[in-house]
């Protein structure tokens, strides 16, 4: 399993992170934007886990794993709040397109 190395895992994480960032920047549907944010968070989780697994797990240091649990919880909370806000927006204008949410600018 030479493919399963630290560097490859990190690169996978970074690619996922970039995909997420790309999604946030390009997608107009705010629901998709929220999903892209989830991808970014999970990419970071992946990076955490691979650092933990390859570098520190053997020494018995496991902080990275715990941090991942924390991030999952926070991401869930953020997603919940985000979805709630999207629901209210949808109720008000039957649409969650970011192009229509440009009332304030300048």
């Amino acid at each position: 399993m030479t493919f399963f190395t630290l560097n490859n895992c990190i690169i996978l994480g970074l690619i996922l992170f970039s995909i997420g960032a790309y999604g946030v920047i390009t997608r107009r549907n705010l629901l998709v934007v929220l999903m892209s944010l989830e991808i970014m968070f999970n990419a970071v989780n992946l990076i955490f886990l691979s650092f933990n697994y390859f570098l520190y797990y053997q020494e018995g240091r496991e902080l990275g794993q715990y941090f991942v649990l924390l991030v999952i919880a926070v991401a869930a909370a953020e997603a919940a709040v985000g979805l709630a806000i999207l629901v209210t927006i949808y109720r008000n204008r039957r649409n969650v397109d970011s192009d229509l949410l440009k009332e304030m600018k300048g």
Partner: peptide
């Protein structure tokens, strides 16, 4: 390469400037 639906919307552009 980037696909067709690359559109500017304000939240997205803010994220873009951030980037």
């Amino acid at each position: 390469y980037f696909g067709q639906n690359f559109q500017t919307g304000s939240v997205n552009t803010y994220a873009f400037t951030f980037l």
